[in-house]
């Protein structure tokens, strides 16, 4: 019953969030601010994690394919497919669920407990739309860019690590990257990143919006936002993989 209650409340909140904005110009300004806060400010963490994950994937692949019958360019190929198919969308989304999700939930939760949301409602403003819609749109616009960044930096990190460790040459790595390349994998990854962005933004906003109490409850909402976003990312990863790759 509680799950049904949450689904119902979540659906109603999303419906309210997508209502017609009071003044488009104000929403546009908020959209730009959110793009900076949620997207641009995540570039650093995505780049750092992608670089090291690409490096680790390459070295692990190399040490697990030491059979002389296997060509070394497979290291590049395995690194490419791991990064494109899973890492740049799913793992990056899980990382962003922690960073962006907790930020959204704590920001909106704090606004709730300090009566700022009530203040918006009293002014005759649809608080759900004003606060949540720009976050959803901003994150859905920027998530694919973060995903592409993760792909590029991850593959670059793999190349640096592979060559530095002496497990693969530049020529073999680049050949592996280009070998049997399926462009649809990028499309698949980008579709996933957009849907994961929607899940992170809406689930976190939901937990923040319905926070009640004080600072302790804001922290609790923030934690729940990260946990639930992560669970739904994994669930939808399974569903989308079956739908898009089968």
């Amino acid at each position: 019953m509680i799950i049904l209650q949450h689904i119902g409340r979540y659906s109603l909140l999303i419906k309210r969030a997508f209502a017609r904005p009071e003044k488009h110009k104000m929403y546009y300004f908020r959209l730009i601010r959110e793009m900076e806060a949620l997207g641009i400010n995540s570039v650093g963490i995505v780049a750092i994690i992608s670089f090291f994950m690409g490096a680790v994937i390459t070295i692990q692949t190399a040490y697990n394919t030491e059979n002389p019958l296997l060509p070394t360019y497979l290291i590049g190929l395995a690194a490419r497919d791991s990064i494109l198919l899973e890492f740049s969308s799913t793992i990056v989304a899980l990382i962003l669920a922690g960073k962006v999700g907790s930020r959204i939930a704590s920001e909106i939760g704090t606004m709730r407990v300090t009566e700022q949301i009530d203040a918006l409602e009293i002014m005759g403003i649809n608080s759900a739309s004003y606060l949540i819609l720009p976050k959803i749109v901003a994150f859905m616009i920027l998530a694919p860019f973060l995903s592409v960044l993760s792909m590029v930096v991850g593959i670059f990190g793999g190349w640096i690590a592979g060559v530095s460790a002496g497990v693969v040459s530049t020529a073999d790595y680049v050949y592996g990257i280009r070998f049997a390349f399926i462009p649809y994998y990028i499309v698949y990854s980008l579709i996933k990143s957009v849907i994961f962005a929607f899940l992170i933004a809406t689930i976190s906003a939901y937990h923040g919006y319905y926070t009640s109490g004080g600072a302790l409850e804001v922290g609790r909402s923030s934690t729940l936002a990260v946990v639930h976003s992560s669970v739904f990312i994994l669930l939808f990863n399974l569903i989308l993989t079956q739908l898009l790759l089968s």
């Binding site: 606004m111 300090t114 700022q116 203040a119 009293i122 002014m123 005759g124």
Partner: peptide, 20 residues
């Protein structure tokens, strides 16, 4: 209609409720 009436409201909350 409620939104229109609310636009004629001014509210002073206990903690101020200013936008941080």
């Amino acid at each position: 209609d409620k939104k229109k009436v609310r636009q004629k409201f001014g509210m002073l909350f206990q903690g101020g409720a200013l936008f941080d």
